[in-house]
């Protein structure tokens, strides 16, 4: 076996992928040939350097949770039963901190489907702040945020910049709601974050504007130009209404 043949098999030899005949041929050549021996040693050194270099990336802690949430969101038939357990602890702590302002009247008359959606929107909002993953694309420039959604959604959400009016656009995020990927636009007002969820209306299910307050969070819902909008924040309802008005204009 010459240097050329050995060179072709050297990687496989070092990786333990050669059969015994191949291994023996390489070994006997390497014993006699200095340059090939150096090459072999170099390959071994490189492998151990990569191994010692601790170059593996560890999945961030929130990823597992995000994956499980996404799976549930994409498989709604099993969402309800597991939802409670998954988020019970998280929501409980939020509930403890924030005064519970349950407005029973706003719940009356809502279908269970809508109640589920409201739950999901609220948990998306809470999760986005807890997982420290509020934006996938961080930018106050609507010309950056809007195109970012381009390849990810089959519609183009509006990304209005309201910095001058005191609601700074800080970015966008992809979320799952109503059994589909939706755009979440994130605004900031002083220390408060506001999530605006936007997705196309199913059919022509136009509904009047509605407001509700859940677990200390205010939510405003409206439909406009074939899109459905949900605005969620712990911001007071007066300022959130101001934000909604600016977004609609």
């Amino acid at each position: 076996m010459n240097c050329n043949d050995t060179g072709k098999l050297l990687n496989a030899y070092v990786d333990g992928e050669l059969d015994s005949t191949g291994s023996l041929s390489v070994e006997s050549h390497v014993q006699q040939c200095g340059p090939c021996r150096t090459n072999m040693e170099n390959l071994r050194l490189l492998s151990s350097a990569v191994e010692k270099g601790a170059l593996r990336f560890q999945a961030p802690r929130h990823l597992k949770r995000n994956v499980q949430t996404a799976i549930r969101a994409a498989n709604p038939e099993m969402k309800r039963s597991s939802f409670g357990w998954q988020w019970a602890g998280a929501l409980a702590s939020v509930v403890l901190i924030v005064a519970l302002t349950w407005v029973a009247t706003t719940q009356r008359g809502r279908s269970s489907e809508e109640a589920q959606l409201i739950d999901d929107i609220l948990s998306s909002h809470v999760r986005s702040m807890m997982a420290n993953h509020i934006t996938d694309v961080a930018s106050s420039d609507s010309h950056t945020v809007k195109p970012w959604f381009g390849g990810k959604l089959d519609y183009s959400p509006p990304a209005k910049d309201l910095t001058e009016q005191g609601f700074r656009l800080i970015g966008g995020r992809l979320d799952y709601l109503d059994n589909r990927p939706v755009a979440a636009l994130v605004y900031q007002r002083s220390q408060h974050f506001i999530n605006l969820f936007v997705w196309p209306l199913k059919g022509d299910a136009v509904s009047p504007e509605s407001q509700l307050s859940r677990q200390g969070y205010n939510m405003i819902h409206w439909t406009q130009s074939g899109m459905t909008y949900w605005l969620v924040s712990e911001l007071n309802s007066k300022e959130l209404n101001e934000c909604a008005r600016l977004l609609r204009d």
């Binding site: 990336f57 961030p60 799976i71 099993m78």
Partner: peptide, 24 residues
């Protein structure tokens, strides 16, 4: 639902331990 829940549990136990490898 029970079946799906079970599927998810098995999935969580079998696939998600490889999340680090997937992420890497």
């Amino acid at each position: 639902r029970l079946f799906d829940q079970n599927e998810l549990t098995v999935f969580n136990e079998t696939v998600l331990p490889h999340l680090d490898a997937a992420y890497n």
